[in-house]
Amino acid sequence: MNLISARKLIFEYVRRDKNGDVDGFSRAIDEVDLEISRGDFVAILGPNGSGKSTLAKHLNSLLFPTEGTVFVDGWDTTDAEKIWDIRKSVGMVFQNPENQMIGTIVEEDVAFGPENMGIEPENIKERVKESLTMVEMYDHRKTSPSKLSGGQKQRVAIAGVLAMHPKCIVLDEPTAMLDPVGREEVIRAIRGLNDVENITIILITHNMEEAVFADKIYVMNEGHIVMSGTPKEVFSRVDELRENRLNVPEVTLLAHELAKAGLNIPPGILTRKELCNCLCRS
């Protein structure tokens, strides 16, 4: 059975006019089906306002479907009795690292989750150490988060989720507010968790370069899933992505232009190396 499966998921919210009266309903998510298996690295791409963050919040019972169902590890996310199990299984990392820090010291922040779960002090210490080591932040355990760079803060946030021993981590645009160095750090940490610890990753982003590493990409727009497939498949459909306010990585774009001009280059080139090898052979 899949770790996460959403069936015909619909989410509507109330729209209000200036006087606060109900004006109608807006559909943020419209009949979305999603299947994510254990150990997968899934990227959900979509422009601003496409509903991808709303979708993410359904995966750990922060929001509940208006219609349809979401199952996490076999549990219905609307099952009030399982809500804490679900939140334990699916950890969330948000966009703004500043707004998710609860402790005044790195290790206190990481301990917050396990403390809420009622874990024994000795065990918490172990978990904190292990999680901070995984994201290479153990040396900073006594530092105040305000002294850290954006990339470091975001890695602490990831450690905070890891300490809850989740099966899956959902990252909602974790790099949107970071500089390229911070981005690189976070993406490296995420890939490490997926490769080494085999933790399921759901990365929500509109940075195309980050989605290249995924096993599977879903593209959302206006509440629908409009495209899905491997990065190769998705990024070979350059024009379709553009229609959805997205783009492709620069290398893919260059390869696309070259292929259009008649060079023998297969669609969906994702990295510099691929393009180079391809050109050197021809």
């Binding site: 948000f94 396990p114 809420n116």
Partner: peptide, 24 residues
Amino acid sequence: RRANDLALAMESRCYRGGEGRTKM
């Protein structure tokens, strides 16, 4: 905005008040 973000972050890290909470 920050308060809203923080509330979500706390909830998704299983915060549900002081009951049953332990300390590192």
